[in-house]
Design a protein around this nucleic acid. Structure first.
Lengths: 240, 240
DNA sequence: AACGGAAAGCTATCGTCGATAACGATGCTG
DNA sequence: CAGCATCGTTATCGACGATAGCTTTCCGTT
């Protein structure tokens, strides 16, 4: 007459329980951040006891890492099902966008995995992501596109992509400058490969930006004219 | 016969106590990370009681933010004492390196401020850093060096620099690829600035002249808007 | 079919943490 | 001197991470 222990005699009941705990924990993290992941909340929601939780995951850190790894694994499972694109550059772009997508879909998990650096601990989840990145960088190198060492390219990509996602997560979710991700991605490609720029640099934008910046120091304009001019310059700037 | 309450009747004793608490808290964070910052450890090391701590900082989050702000403030105080370098590009590089230096000097504080995104909360410490960055980007724009909008340049710089520092902090401190910081810095400069200034003469007039010259190549403007913009640019140009 | 060992479950508990209520002491003000 | 505000002090609450010790259940062996 307990809650619902699925089957006492199930041979793979352990794995079943473990999956259920991970599912519950992932939901708690997604809803309330890492602070909401308390052992008591997990055991209550999963219908188990605290000692069971500790037998499964060792301690709370183990649970957290298991949640992170499972979340990342379930995300890359969809992406990695298809073999990598033959174009290494396109594959690199897709990998970048996928990583950004994971961050936006699982803000708390992303911040836990990549927002709390600790040289001592090696996170299996972070490792998995790094391996995927290394493969894509290696493909670039094989294609002769890399202008820096593989290590440098990998580190620069990982660092900038992580920074972009954290910056995006710090904006209100209904006002995220998602363009920031693609702009940075192309900047990274520019920095590590010989690939030609995807978009040519327009002429007027630079001057418009410069004038916009010093607009406050202009004279001879009415307030209305200045406001109108600012709007026009902003539009030209964004065309870049 | 207590430990050492500095002076019961001191008029500015409150500020004195607050500073002492901040100092103790900063030391605890630096030595043991954010987990070591418990209210009990702080009150014991500072020789005060828990209610005093809560009267000073509201709650633990308030204490944490105060520590972060004080740490960042004490760091930028040294740097900002001198006025910015006249060369905006050099000033930008120095700002980047200073930010990286702060991160390496205060790993725990950096991770707390920039590694845990939360759109709801506005961290005063993070704001201070952002203001400093905005000034430097603005100087680039005024000099006609910017090829993207100020907003984009600021966001890209902030995101990548944060990512680089977090990546560096994730390496063992005796094997940090510090070159990663400068490589990324130059990549960012490549991405957001022109190699050569876009405007020959700095200031509004020069930018207006440059934009007026390339006005025919602008897109996204109606004929009426283009005509109006031309008139405004002509008036600004003549102010030179 | 009976038995022994192993694995898992359960209850109860410990020490720590963040936070606060309630009281007392002190100094300033009118 | 009375009143008030500020600050220090004690005691306590509920929640948390973690664990000891006992009980139950299951499976393979004899």
């Amino acid at each position: 007459m307990t809650i619902l222990p699925p089957k006492p005699g199930d041979p793979n009941a352990s794995q079943d329980v473990r999956d259920r705990v991970l599912q519950v924990a992932a939901r708690l993290v997604a809803e309330g951040g890492r602070a909401a992941l308390t052992t008591r909340a997990v055991v209550a929601a999963a219908g188990i006891q605290q000692p069971t939780l500790y037998r499964l995951f060792g301690d709370k850190t183990g649970l957290l890492e298991a949640v992170a790894e499972a979340g990342l694994a379930s995300y890359v499972a969809d992406k990695a099902s298809a073999e990598p694109d033959p174009d290494p550059l396109l594959d690199f772009r897709m990998g970048w966008d996928s990583h950004v997508g994971f961050g936006l879909a699982h803000p708390a998990l992303f911040a836990i995995i990549w927002g709390n650096p600790d040289p001592a601990r090696v996170s299996p989840a972070a490792n998995a992501g790094r391996v995927a990145l290394r493969r894509k960088v290696q493909a670039l190198a094989v294609a002769g596109l890399l202008r820096v060492s593989e290590t440098k390219a990998e580190r620069l990509t990982h660092a900038t992509c992580t920074g972009v996602v954290l910056a995006l997560l710090d904006m209100p979710d209904d006002d995220r400058d998602i363009e920031l991700a693609s702009i940075t991605r192309e900047a990274v490609i520019q920095a590590i490969t010989f690939a030609a720029p995807a978009t040519a640099t327009p002429g007027p934008a630079g001057a418009a930006i410069a004038l916009r910046a010093s607009l406050a120091h202009t004279t001879g304009l009415t307030p209305g004219e200045r406001l109108l001019l600012a709007e026009l310059l902003d539009r030209i700037s964004e065309q870049a």
